[in-house]
């Protein structure tokens, strides 16, 4: 039986669908600025489509990587993170049934997280990251800021129309936890929990791309 042929048919059904995926960033801080971070990419909602795609050689002109290639790539990323100074206890999971990837680690201070991002960036971007750090935690002022160094909307315009659809139904969620209560937040989309010790920002990728919403935030903690 021609497996590929059958999959071609299964693809017709899923081809026009956009994939849905969740991007979740969770960071818990200790009083001294150290903490732990978990990054989750969940593609479970598109698993039928992905299972079909995984059986193909290429799609939309892109080569479909094998499970081994993906596993190796993830291992490579984890290895690189492990090499970063100030980062410990790096763990990861990779679930090909549900298509969920997680990477977690402990860090001495947020600078280590910025270093991790720099390690995966080009020289040009490293310079930009230095000016526009993704994470800053000021112990004295008790402020935490989340930022980024690129214009997402602009980067997005560079991609092919066809590829942009992937992001149409994607979501971004960030949860930051602190030991001291949160006093205020600059991003009005973010919600502070009842205990005031956690803050969540849930956004549609579309809104981030079109610059309607931002993942940037400045959080002021109580003294």
């Amino acid at each position: 039986m021609n497996k590929r042929l059958i999959l071609l048919f299964s693809l017709i059904s899923t081809f026009l669908f956009t994939s849905c995926f969740e991007f979740v960033e969770e960071v818990s801080f200790n009083k001294d600025g150290s903490g732990s971070a978990v990054l989750t990419i969940n593609l479970s909602k598109s698993k039928t489509k992905l299972a079909s795609i995984m059986l193909l050689d290429s799609i939309n002109g892109y080569k479909v990587p094998s499970k081994t290639t993906i596993r190796n790539k993830v291992n490579e990323i984890v290895y690189k993170i492990k090499q970063t100074k100030g980062v410990h206890n790096v763990k990861n999971t990779l679930d090909f049934n549900e298509f969920i990837v997680t990477v977690s680690c402990d860090f001495d201070n947020v600078e280590a997280l910025n270093e991790v991002i720099s390690n995966f960036s080009s020289k040009k971007h490293i310079e930009a990251i230095k000016k526009n750090k993704h994470f800053t935690y000021n112990k004295e002022n008790k402020t935490f800021t989340r930022s980024h160094h690129f214009d997402l909307g602009k980067e997005f315009q560079k991609t092919k129309n066809q590829d942009r659809k992937v992001f149409e139904t994607a979501t971004y969620t960030s949860v930051y936890r602190f030991e001291t209560p949160i006093k205020s937040t600059e991003n009005n989309q973010a919600r502070i929990s009842k205990s005031k010790k956690a803050i969540m920002l849930h956004l549609q990728a579309q809104d981030i791309i079109s610059n309607k919403q931002s993942i940037k935030n400045k959080i002021q903690l109580e003294n």
Binding site: V24, E26, K45, E98, K194, K197, A198
Partner: peptide, 21 residues
């Protein structure tokens, strides 16, 4: 499919939902 729900302290819980495909 698997997705997440958050409690009042924004603790993540894995839940299974269904969708039509």
């Amino acid at each position: 499919y698997t997705t997440y729900e958050y409690d009042k302290d924004y603790k993540r819980k894995e839940v299974t939902k269904t969708k039509e495909d």
